[in-house]
């Protein structure tokens, strides 16, 4: 009885105030789509991190004849340098940190290069001698790269020691900035959604002031008076969140899985499961913000 009455009243309120309710739905929809996008980006960063960090290695580049003279004064490094590096990598001080390592000579480096830059003009001009001979070191714990870097930097015949994760960190920080931007836009839009909801609810209350007056007169409890209005806001907010959830799922399904995955193979992308995992959060945010905005608005209206 009570429930059916409250829902009937809410239905009447929504129908009378339809255009405002629709605008609330749209604003919530758009702002939560931004929230969801930020969430997806974070998940994407997370999954790329686990994928790439795992593969990332420390590269010890030996000098070539074309290396800059200030780091490689004696030009192409000798076989002795290779021996020194190998023995250091096998020494008891470093061995415990190292999972595996292998040596790549000029020809192997050239082959890898040709494969990676197959369609790139630079592949035509590069010669094997220009490409560094390299020790690829895979660590047991990728966070311990500084140990390797320290023990080889400055050694003569070595051009550079590079933790490949530093390249990745640049990409990740860009993605992080993008998701931060999405979150900032989302926050602004959620704020305007909250304002819009409170205006909508106040309007709805004004349109129903006779009913409210009679309810107060006959002794309806405040909760009972407020509930249809709060529900009106929550319903609009939840519909908006569901639309946002749908948009996020559609983006993942059609754009990420349907397009990006084919364009950029060998990269792990967020999947539908990640998108669905965001849904409860989106609905909770939409419902909560709408509920709080509606409740505080109707309270303020009823107090005066």
């Amino acid at each position: 009885m009570r429930a059916s009455f409250v829902f009937t009243e809410m239905g009447i309120a929504i129908r009378r105030n339809l255009s405002m309710v629709i605008s609330v739905i749209l604003v919530t929809f758009i702002s939560l789509t931004f929230v969801g996008t930020a969430g997806l980006l974070q998940q994407q960063i997370g999954s790329m991190k686990t994928y790439w960090y795992d593969k990332a290695q420390v590269a010890v580049y030996l000098c070539t004849a074309t290396s800059p003279k200030d780091v490689c004064p004696q030009g192409e490094s000798s076989k002795d340098v290779q021996k020194t590096v190998t023995s250091r990598l096998n020494s008891p001080t470093l061995k415990p940190y190292i999972d595996t390592f292998y040596f790549e000579n000029h020809d192997q480096a050239y082959k890898t290069f040709q494969k990676e830059f197959k369609n790139n003009a630079v592949a035509k001009y590069v010669t094997p001698a220009q490409l560094n001979e390299t020790f690829w070191v895979k660590l047991k714990d990728p966070n311990q790269a500084p140990i390797i870097i320290e023990s080889f930097s400055g050694l003569s015949g070595i051009e550079q020691v590079k933790d490949q994760r530093s390249y990745l960190d640049q990409i990740f920080s860009m993605l992080n900035i993008a998701s931060l931007a999405a979150i900032s836009i989302a926050t602004l839009m959620l704020f305007s959604a909250a304002l819009l909801i409170s205006t909508t609810i106040r309007l709805s209350a004004v349109m129903r002031r006779r009913e409210i007056g009679i309810m107060r007169l006959v002794g309806a409890s405040n909760f009972y008076i407020q509930l249809p209005f709060i529900l009106e806001g929550v319903v609009a907010g939840v519909i908006g969140s569901l639309l946002a959830g749908g948009a996020i799922v559609a983006v993942v399904n059609y754009f990420v899985q349907g397009y990006l995955v084919q364009q950029l193979p060998f990269t792990s992308f967020v999947g539908l499961a990640d998108a669905f995992a965001l849904l409860p959060g989106l609905i909770a945010i939409g419902g909560l913000i709408a509920g709080i905005a509606a409740a505080s608005s109707i309270r303020r209206y009823l107090r005066v």
């Binding site: 006779r210 009679i214 006959v218 009972y224 008076i225």
Partner: peptide, 22 residues
């Protein structure tokens, strides 16, 4: 102070509904 869109009976019933009568 009647609700213009409710009938006589509904106006009376409304005052009971809002205080949760069965």
């Amino acid at each position: 102070r009647l609700l213009p869109n409710k009938t006589a009976a509904q106006n009376v019933a409304f005052s009971l509904e809002v205080i949760g009568k069965s």
